[in-house]
Amino acid sequence: MDPVRDPEENEPKQLREYADLEHARVIEIGTGNGRMTWRYASLTKSVAGIDPEFDRLKEAVDDRPKNFAPEVYFAQAKAEALPFKDSTFDGAIFAWSF
């Protein structure tokens, strides 16, 4: 059984305090299965979740709440070669992935 991570919701509180998420176009590097993405995506204009591991991204796509599509989308890529044009995003989140 999967563990329960951060039921105290410290992580989303900190995310909201530190990042200018309101209506922002965000790229999340190391999005994995979207565990963290769902905790802030509703505040943003859009989120592009990037991860090199296809299986984890598939989990994220399968779990994506219907009201988030297509504003939350996922791409298999490495941080060293992002498939986006210059200046596409307002902000970037390195999620447990530096």
Partner: peptide, 10 residues
């Protein structure tokens, strides 16, 4: 590169 001018990194 992909973040706009004055954009943020968390």
């Amino acid at each position: 590169r992909v973040v706009q001018k004055d954009g943020w990194l968390l």
